[in-house]
Design a protein around this nucleic acid. Structure first.
Lengths: 235, 235
DNA sequence: CGATTAATTGATACTTCTCAAATCCTGTGG
DNA sequence: CCACAGGATTTGAGAAGTATCAATTAATCG
């Protein structure tokens, strides 16, 4: 499932169809292939740094990362998780603002790097790609609105349940059913927007209630349906 | 400052330069002028309805509105305020998702309506406009990230101060120095993400501390600099 | 001008955070 | 591969921040 480095030829890329490049034809893909370079990030390494001016965008080929802002008191707030097919850095480049959130690798990650000038070139010459990016940012904007409403109105317990479901949807589970992402309790609470101890206490509650089981740092969602109820998600 | 209805000719529109149509040439503006119609909304009237499928976008000519989501328990969460030059409905149309937030007029509002098909036509034919909308949504995405971080990490007191500064920046003040927007205390707390009584209590504190003064529903920010400190804003 | 809705304040309950201490786990270097 | 140091997790206790409920006063709109 996870080969290592991305192919030089974008036509052969396994992530093509789930990326912002999904409906480009072969000629268009070749053009991007010529402009890109491949980059590897070790676990823990920064992929983008808040406040900087990005020189290009990354298309994540494989691996996992977190996108976060540093708030007052230096506490990190995770805005979302990043996985294969995700496009990074375009927000800052297109709005011509400094990078508003950092990204760091949660495990070894490979990405394709497209320099700013090349990215703009593709955006300007290729309306189809431009529309893809537009759709992408509009979708993320909708998700951000949901997150704002949750943070403002839901309890920590509801939000934790919500995040566990998001992790499940984003990263899936391994052969034993554990969430296929290794996060510290602190990272979980930095997404939920709560103190680490509060998240831990609620995870214990969830365990007692049979909603999850844990094994060290690993978490398995035992009852997604019940979890949805806890998260007050009705859809 | 506030004429009534928008002109039929977009070239003459006073909001042209602050809208997503700001750098289009006269031919391009004329084309949009042919496609649009003018719509008036009375105070309190809905401009867009959460869950619906929009049939077009609105460019706000004058007036004020709130953009909000209904959360669990039916409580409204205001995501942002809308004023002249703002574009509405494009998020849903471009991401091909149902409208994720309602908009209702806070005072009588005039807008230009551009049907979905025409909007797509302009997006596809006019890369400059497409890039404008892209910039717009990327900018809003950055703002949403800030709001998420505030909600997750700041106290209600800090957030209330932040909102008062946002209201000041968005709507300015009248000749007496009062914020030029009439909101109920409930609406303020629906932006802050808190109970109405909590917002009221904190406004009383702010009054005692000389940060604001009030006259009925009207609020005047007396000390913006000190307010920034209260909001923990350092920039 | 009166009816109705909004604003305000008080009292109390509940949620969540902070600090502290003990235990567990993980990654690293030998 | 194993042991160990240091960080992460867990639980408890108490403090702080917010929400809720209730009652009164003030403001708004027809």
């Amino acid at each position: 499932m996870n080969e290592t480095t991305p192919p030089l030829n974008c036509q052969l890329c396994q992530q093509k169809d789930i990326s912002a490049f999904h409906n480009l034809n072969n000629d268009e893909l070749d053009k991007i292939g010529e402009l890109k370079t491949c980059v590897a990030f070790k676990k823990g390494q920064m992929i983008m740094h808040e406040g900087a001016r990005p020189q290009g965008v990354y298309c994540i080929h494989n691996g996992k990362a977190k996108l976060y802002r540093i708030g007052t008191e230096g506490k990190e707030q995770i805005l979302r998780f990043i996985t294969r097919g995700d496009l990074l850095g375009y927000r800052s480049i297109l709005s011509d603002e400094p990078i508003s959130a950092s990204v760091s690798a949660l495990e070894d990650t490979f990405a394709c790097y497209i320099p700013k000038s090349s990215f703009f070139q593709v955006i300007e010459e290729n309306p189809k790609f431009s529309l893809n990016v537009l759709k992408l940012s509009c979708h993320e904007l909708g998700e951000a609105g949901k997150m704002i409403t949750s943070l403002a109105q839901k309890t920590v317990r509801e939000r934790l349940a919500e995040i566990l479901l998001i992790l499940h949807a984003t990263f899936g589970s391994d052969e034993e059913g554990f969430l296929d992402i290794k996060l510290t309790r602190e990272e979980i609470s930095n997404m939920v927007g709560t103190a680490t101890e509060s998240a831990i206490r609620l995870l214990s509650e969830f365990k007692d209630e049979g909603l999850i089981s844990t094994q060290g740092r690993k978490i398995r969602v035992e009852n997604a349906l019940k979890m949805k109820n806890v998260a007050s998600i009705y859809d």
